[in-house]
């Protein structure tokens, strides 16, 4: 089985860990060897939250510089920060809706202009799928579903050894019942963003 390293990065509160966990659960159900590593602790709220999903028998829980096969960025600044884990072959999916850190709101630092750096990414990496996932999540019914929108897009790349239905099934069984519908809607909207 092909070994695959997927890096998720975002800001505390965006549901990064849920996204990586859903992918992990779906992989486990499909009998694919999987390891998911999570960040708990100080960083969790308001800080950077990274998680990884390793498929196909990789034992290491973390990803070395240049070794991510896929990067899913929940926030554009965090996507930029995580580029060092990418090679030029890495497939990158990123939300373009910014969440400025307080260092920016306090005027101590400057938020990099997003269009410019998206363009940079486009010319540096083989595949970059960038869009406003927050807007898509809003259309789906809740901005809290940015995580599942991006999961949909990740699935649509066709690189995962998992079909969309496997992830839908995991969403049905792992997400709180009253949130299943909105998450399924978000997932499906994410799926079409890859085209």
């Amino acid at each position: 089985m092909k070994r695959m390293r997927i890096l998720f990065t975002g800001v505390g509160g965006q549901g990064t860990l849920l996204a990586s966990r859903l992918l992990g659960e779906a992989a486990m159900s499909a009998g694919i060897p999987v390891r998911v590593s999570e960040v708990h602790g100080m960083a969790q709220r308001g800080g950077v939250v990274e998680s990884t999903v390793m498929l196909g028998g990789i034992e290491s829980p973390i990803i070395a510089e240049g070794e991510a096969d896929l990067l899913v960025g929940f926030e554009p600044l965090e996507t930029l920060r995580a580029l060092r884990f990418c090679s030029t072959d890495t497939v990158i999916i990123t939300n373009t809706a910014p969440i400025p850190p307080f260092t920016v709101t306090l005027g101590q630092a400057e938020y990099p202009p997003i269009p410019r750096w998206m363009e940079f990414m486009g010319s540096t990496f083989r595949t970059v799928i960038a869009y406003d996932a927050e807007a898509v999540a809003r259309e789906a019914g809740s901005t809290k579903t940015v995580n599942v929108v991006l999961l949909g897009t990740l699935c649509a790349t066709g690189l995962l050894p998992l079909r969309p239905e496997a992830l839908r099934e995991t969403i049905r069984s792992r997400v709180k019942p009253k949130l299943v519908d909105v998450n399924l809607a978000a997932f499906d909207r994410g799926l079409v963003q890859a085209q």
Partner: peptide, 11 residues
């Protein structure tokens, strides 16, 4: 080419 990226400490 990347600019210095603003830190995001927990708050």
């Amino acid at each position: 080419a990347l600019p210095p990226l603003p830190q995001r400490p927990p708050s």
